[in-house]
């Protein structure tokens, strides 16, 4: 241990860290405080963390008791529905494919894996028009199917699971297979329970990804409330399509509502987020 560091250096270190922490966290505190402010108070005291007077009109608007009409309950319902279905689908289908690519010997496996790597390098923003074309062609524009189905398998998730299975010794499954279990049975009751850490990481990434998803929903739905999620709804609110003017307390409350589920997930399962972030290193 290096004990020669001077107290001055220590103080400087902490000062720098605290300064950065304020820089990264203060905007969220302002957001929370402003969501409880009146519109004039928000404009007059934008830096203050204490609403004066305290006012919950933004939250009342959101939950349908206020003057402004914000269909937030519908948005929440859609967000939850889409995120839950996509997450379940991805966890199951990604690990199924990842397992096959790692373990099951079949003709064409190398080719499929190569194709997967190629697909992973396709940038999402270049896919907006292509996705719209296919959704239109299939006649599923502006439906839940169009929102969910294209997201239900993701190449990066398959890649993560393949990498994970590659790192697990094969012998335990061979034992199960020799006892006469089918490949699917082995996968389901022997392999998946072992894969818990990877599955949790994948669950978090999938939930976070589909909850925060924006551009996909933007191009496959009309943008009417019945298929809006919290994120697309918030975007229409913020870009002024609902005639919301500058009502910052309302917009910030809606933004806060959008942030809360991922924040809870983040603070309770942080270490899995960290492994998810480092996955970016292999994702390319």
């Amino acid at each position: 241990m290096n004990t020669r560091t001077s107290p001055l250096k220590q103080v400087l270190l902490y000062a720098a860290l605290v300064l950065f922490a304020v820089f990264f966290i203060y905007p969220f505190f302002i957001q929370i405080a402003t969501s409880f402010k009146t519109d004039p108070d928000a404009a007059a005291h934008p830096l203050s963390l204490i609403p004066n007077p305290f006012d919950a009109h933004a939250w009342k608007d959101i939950f349908g008791q206020g003057a402004a009409h914000v269909p937030a309950p519908t948005w929440i319902k859609n967000s939850v529905l889409v995120a839950v279905v996509v997450t379940c689908g991805r966890v199951f289908l990604d690990s199924l494919a990842g397992y096959a690519l790692s373990r099951v010997k079949f003709r064409g496996r190398g080719f499929i894996f190569g194709a997967l790597l190629a697909v992973m390098s396709v940038p999402g923003v270049a896919l907006l028009i292509p996705k719209f074309l296919m959704v239109n062609y299939l006649g599923i524009y502006d439906t839940y199917t169009a929102m969910i189905l294209p997201l239900i398998v993701d190449a990066a998730g398959v890649f993560i699971m393949k990498q994970f299975f590659d790192s697990v010794p094969i012998s335990i499954e061979e034992a199960a297979r020799m006892d006469g279990a089918s490949i699917f049975r082995t996968f389901w009751s022997v392999v998946l329970p072992m894969a818990r850490p990877a599955l949790i990481t994948l669950t978090i990434l999938s939930f976070q990804g589909s909850w925060n998803e924006f551009s996909h929903f933007l191009v496959v739905t009309k943008g009417t409330p019945d298929h809006q999620t919290l994120v697309t709804g918030l975007a229409s609110l913020t870009s002024g399509q609902l005639g919301a003017g500058t009502q910052y307390p309302l917009k910030l409350a809606a933004a806060l509502l959008t942030t809360i589920p991922v924040a809870i997930l983040f603070f309770s399962l942080q270490r899995y987020f960290v492994s998810g972030a480092n996955e970016g290193g292999v994702k390319g």
């Binding site: 922490a21 934008p46 925060n212 933004a255 991922v262 942080q270």
Partner: peptide, 21 residues
């Protein structure tokens, strides 16, 4: 945690906050 938290939140929600800031 403090430095990483902004990375996990929705880009739309964060943009809304910055519009206000």
């Amino acid at each position: 945690t403090a430095f990483y938290f902004p990375s996990v939140t929705s880009s739309i929600a964060i943009s809304t906050v910055f519009l206000f800031l």
